[in-house]
Design a binder for these strands. Structure first.
Length: 513
RNA sequence: GGCGGCGUAGCUCAGCGGUAGAGCAGGAGAAUCAUAAUCUCUUGGUCGGCGGUUCAAAUCCGUCCGCCGCUACCA
């Protein structure tokens, strides 16, 4: 039986339109999903939208719509974003779907049965304007003698009934879990922050609200709706069929990887494993947090007005260059900066000059000097032939281990070392000179290059599916021969190749007036 | 306040105990198959400051300076 692999994006909160932060996380998860498929794994890749909560209720009101109509609209935008970004998700889950509400209710009942949910009271200083509770020591008294939050909003003492999750009881078991699974939280800095947070002690978590209605109703107590994070996190098991553990998709649980933004690491690394353990379910293997994108060195925000929409970006530069840029430019565990200059530089130098041109110069020589047929491999490979072939073949392992650590930029850097070596190889071997003195050797050199490009294009498919598909087309590699396993087999000598066409045109900036 | 991260060539970063590295940018040369793309060589750093440990420190320890993150709900 084929080994399964279950990878998720976060479900995106529908209180605003998709931006490059959402697109980035989805593309990163997509690369993992596509890589695992290339490895031959049985992959389930999930994305979707988180549609409940007071903020959504309010955003709907502001838009003059019923919450469901509002979320239908925004959810459609996120589905469109997935399509625009070439996301290969196997399902798209919305938390307003009946299957999800059923899963939430089932999980809730399970947690009640296990004694991990109890009814109590939530009370504290609440600022209506901020929709947030504040601790006593955060408050100040203003000139009118009114108690106010740090934001200046007046607060009032609120006491409402609430269900609680007995999170405090899970501290030791969580710490034991982290110890037993040192790779559960990535990157390392996030791991430490979570650990320090849990070591600092955990309070029971309020998991229901009575102050608004837009949520999943608590079973047996319709005055309450579930806390949005309990609702939201459950999506990962809903899509696997929960509570039906005989469901066809249940074989994918536990998930292998939740890709998330660094702002929601805690929910995934603390609450989620606690909920799962309390429900007697196995815990996801790994939660990996990515950083933020700044734009031209500045924080991306609506007020600055520098929010970048993925669709516009892709329309201008093309999908694959944008995917490549995101994954190459964001160093694992850090924030990344988005700038037009950097994007154009990556497109022209890395894609057009290095990779595109390597393929074009190699393939056009085969087209013109070998009758467009793939020449034979060297009978006795020269040292230089063997060196670059070995280097290229190592990519399968190097890229694979980097992707397993979500170190996408390292994976790409490894591939580019081979591409640069390819350009060095062709220059040193100078097949255009060999043409006049040793046509057999010229053919061998071109075949080595074809082999290297084939490996490069194969391992880059998850990053740039469409353009690498075209590159493999030009190498005469059949669509069913593009997995990592097939790389072990040589291409067929004499294969007739289609005429080569440039894959990555240079981006020429419009003339500045 | 507590916990943690970062500070290395103009820029983005790797190295984390043993004669300072990569990519990009800059300079010189070569080549001409190719999307005027490529290749080779090269300029450039007292590795934030100061002290300590060590035969030897970007690399370990202390301290100071400067950024940044987390400290219960925006990817």
């Amino acid at each position: 039986m084929t080994e399964t692999f279950y990878v998720t994006t976060p479900i995106y909160y529908v209180n605003g339109a998709p931006h490059i932060g959402h697109a980035y996380t989805s593309i990163a998860a997509d690369v993992v999903a596509r890589w695992k498929r290339l490895q031959g794994r049985d992959v389930f890749f999930l994305t979707g939208t988180d549609e409940h909560g007071q903020k959504v209720e309010k955003a709907a009101q502001d838009a003059g719509l019923e919450p469901q109509a509002f979320t239908d609209r925004i959810a459609a935008e996120f589905e469109a974003m997935a399509a625009t970004c070439g996301i290969s998700n196997d399902d798209f889950i919305r938390t307003t779907e009946p299957r999800h509400k059923a899963a939430c209710a089932a999980l809730w009942s399970k947690l009640v049965e296990s004694g991990d949910i109890y009814l109590g009271h939530y009370e504290g200083w609440y600022a209506v304007r901020d929709e947030a509770f504040y601790a006593e020591d955060e408050l100040a008294t203003n000139v009118h003698g009114v108690r106010v939050a740090p934001t200046g909003a007046p607060v009032e003492w609120v006491r409402e009934p609430s269900y609680f999750f007995r999170l405090s009881a899970w501290q030791d078991r969580l710490l034991a879990f982290y110890e037993a699974h040192p790779d559960f939280i990535a990157p390392h800095a996030q791991h430490r922050e979570v650990l320090s947070f849990v070591r600092g002690g955990l309070n029971d978590l309020s998991v229901s609200r009575t102050s608004f209605r837009w949520g999943v109703e608590v079973p047996g107590d319709p005055d309450h709706v579930m806390y949005v994070w309990l609702d939201a996190l459950t999506n990962y098991i809903t899509a696997a069929g929960y509570p039906d553990e005989s469901a066809e998709r249940w074989r994918f649980w536990p998930a292998n990887l939740h890709m998330v933004g660094k702002d929601i690491i805690r929910f995934h690394a603390v609450y989620w494993p606690a909920f799962l353990m309390a429900a007697g379910l196995p815990v996801t293997h790994r939660v990996s947090a990515n950083g933020w994108w700044t734009v031209e060195g500045e924080k991306m925000s609506k007020s600055i007005g520098n929010v970048i929409e993925p669709a516009a970006l892709i329309a201008e530069f093309g999908l694959d260059p944008v995917r490549f840029f995101f994954l190459r430019e964001m160093p694992y565990g850090n924030d990344g900066d988005f700038s037009r200059k950097a994007l154009i530089s990556r497109l022209n130098i890395d894609l057009a000059n290095d990779l595109g041109n390597l393929a074009q110069r190699s393939l056009s020589m085969i087209a013109r000097n070998c009758g467009g047929r793939l020449p034979s491999m060297p009978g006795a490979p020269a040292h230089a032939d063997q060196a670059i072939l070995d280097h290229a073949r190592d990519l399968v392992t190097l890229v694979g281990t980097a992707i397993d650590r979500q170190a996408f930029h390292e994976a790409l850097e490894e591939v580019w070392r081979v591409i640069r070596a390819g350009n060095g190889y062709i220059d040193h071997q100078a097949p255009w000179a060999l043409k006049k003195i040793d046509e057999t050797r010229m053919g061998e050199v071109l075949r080595v290059l074809a082999e290297v490009i084939r490996i490069v294009a194969t391992v880059l498919q998850p990053f740039m599916p469409e353009s690498m598909g075209r590159m493999l087309d030009q190498l005469g590699v059949q669509p069913d021969a593009r997995s990592l396993a097939v790389l072990a087999l040589p291409m067929a000598d004499g294969t007739l190749l289609p005429p080569p066409h440039g894959i990555f045109p240079r981006f020429v900036a419009e003339a500045v007036c």
